[in-house]
Design a protein around this nucleic acid. Sequence first.
DNA 1: GAGTGGTCTAGACCACAGA
DNA 2: CTGTGGTCTAGACCACTCG
Lengths: 274, 274
Amino acid sequence: MKKPDPPASAEFRRVAQAIRDRVRDGTYKPGQRLPAAPAMAEELGSNRSAVERAVRVVAAEGLLTTRQGSGAYVSRIIHSITRDGTGRYRKARREEAGPEGVQARGAFEAELRRMNLVPRNHPSVRREVPPPQVAEILGVDPNQVSVVVRDRRMYAAPADAPPGDLGTPVQIATTYIPLDIAGGTVLEDLDTGAGGMISRLAEMGHTQVRIGEKIKVRTPTPEEAEFLSLDLDNRVCQITHTAWTAEDRAVEVTVHILPASLWELSYSWDIENG
Amino acid sequence: MKKPDPPASAEFRRVAQAIRDRVRDGTYKPGQRLPAAPAMAEELGSNRSAVERAVRVVAAEGLLTTRQGSGAYVSRIIHSITRDGTGRYRKARREEAGPEGVQARGAFEAELRRMNLVPRNHPSVRREVPPPQVAEILGVDPNQVSVVVRDRRMYAAPADAPPGDLGTPVQIATTYIPLDIAGGTVLEDLDTGAGGMISRLAEMGHTQVRIGEKIKVRTPTPEEAEFLSLDLDNRVCQITHTAWTAEDRAVEVTVHILPASLWELSYSWDIENG
DNA sequence: GAGTGGTCTAGACCACAGA
DNA sequence: CTGTGGTCTAGACCACTCG
């Protein structure tokens, strides 16, 4: 049954909306493969080009992921995960956190459990030449190996997934600490112990008293797109997180890369009335 | 001089990068019209379809704006404006703020001035039935006219622009206040006086002591796209800002809609070490 | 009315996935 | 090897802007 009648203004948007609707109402379920483009074109009374373009649009919004040669799939996570920026920095919460520190746990984990998912982590540690903006914040040499880099790739896996299944990549968190602070300490170990980095830094005399976060929305780099299985025209939130000591020294910078469609960011604070 | 040699994987991406480069290096200046698609195709050794698609991609990133029948233009603002979420809520700053309150002034204005721009404002006030999520936060009836709505459309104009030229739309801010608080008060006037809404609310016994903001990145609605002159596949940040009193009553919700490519968000706070 | 971007069509080739 | 998405091509029509 063709449908050539309407003046066809923005046919691909009509198809895109049909796809969104089917994802939202569960006709297409998370993880499921969509019908091939020609089939869907037939079904919707359209043509392959329009369907391809529609899929591109919806994929850029984060609802679909395409894999060349294989098909278009509904994203496994189609609702937002909340990242509570401020709430995580309370001592009570920090003490109950696991080895990988505050960021990986607490609210984030609870958030995922509500979706029947569990967090997985792939940490790594190395020494490196810092990116220029990070070097500037930390006040270290941008041309030398002057920072310890703690890299965490974070996933969300179905609660019943086998240990080998990492699940969906949801975040890249890269922490930079000046080499003269972290070099040769437990901060170069994968496991930093109870309370994580923040507690260790405090024990070394670098107690954090103030946090700043800057948020920028942009397209992912090819590497980010690859790891997060995003299209190049998706969007990521880049959060540059900086921790200062009472002496106003920046002791830690963490850059978080989050698929923008996957997350909701939350901050809260008291007003100074003095 | 054609360039048909390379296997042409993602020709439109090559063209898109060429356009980005020319915007970044000033070959195409802010506000300037780009060459027509066929001309640009010739110049870059490409074809109209590839150029159109490339323009679409770069426009979705916020660097270009297209006007059907007229042309593609470099966006007037191609660098980020910073919105400091937390810094604006200090009493010192509030007292020096103008009539439209904290949000419209302070850091935002300073930020713009550095780009040789000045803020312009189009406020309006009315009573309305609140959107469901707002009604839930404020605890008011979602089916009745139960809130006062203060709407501000914000622009950035060149410093030397005539008064008639509003400049580039940069933000929509919609504030909702329960009718039983704001009804019949100065909060229904366009000008709320020195210190703005926050000070007036405090004087009425609704002192704000805690702020929460939730940030979501999404595609704009057609109406938002229209006002902000965005394409439908751009992105906006939707910031839902809530203010609570000491009695834990939400007295004000403001929804900010910002073109994501135009803004950088910033938050900072002290860590509780108690 | 001429020029512009927006869209659609139809067909073609490629790279990749997976049986 | 077949089917898939990704892309390119070339031409066509439309809606809109602007002189």
